[in-house]
Amino acid sequence: MTDRDGGLSGRVASSTDDADRDVLARVSNGELDALQDLYDRYRTMAYSIALRITADASLAEDVVQDAFLGAWRNAARYVEGRGSVKTWLLSIVHHRAIDAVRRRRPTSELPEAEAPPPPALTLPDVWKEVAGNLDREAIAAALATLSVVQREAIELAYFGGLTQVEIADRTGAPLGTVKSRVRLGLLAMRAELTGEAADAGEADTQ
């Protein structure tokens, strides 16, 4: 078994990012061993995220395969400066997993047939990470600042694939309340993460 913390523990940010970008450059050049390298680096995180969202081992593997093949074919579309390779790759996994659970859901309000294809392979341009790579403790601390209802709303949206209307239905909260819970929750995380980032910068490596 792999060390439980192995996949997600903190890394020295800059060297990991540089190495990832080198690997991705080779992937975009069509080098299969670079894809293998990328897969070996992120398969555990990718699969864990896909499994969390789909709660289905077989579907999660489909999602991971789809995501890595998407990365293989579209590595050239990664835009440096808009986020790390890790974030780009994992956001593809997230997107495809949400897509899979929404398709699977029987009585969704989503207009199944005419739904336009989501822009799956570009990182949303609003995703400028606030602090580069952070370790799990920092992220846990940021999550701990959320209230129970804020966290519930964010998790239903981000890991459950529910829309704001569906979240309001599920939680019994008015739509405006759902919006403000998510907004305040994300802002609280941001405050905690940017504070942590300043500290981590002082401490350099840890």
Partner: peptide, 18 residues
């Protein structure tokens, strides 16, 4: 939006090998 990527590294996500 800058916070969202970190949700993918939430310690609540159980680590599972494919």
């Amino acid at each position: 939006g800058g916070v969202v990527p970190y949700l993918l590294e939430s310690p609540d996500i159980e680590i599972v090998e494919p």
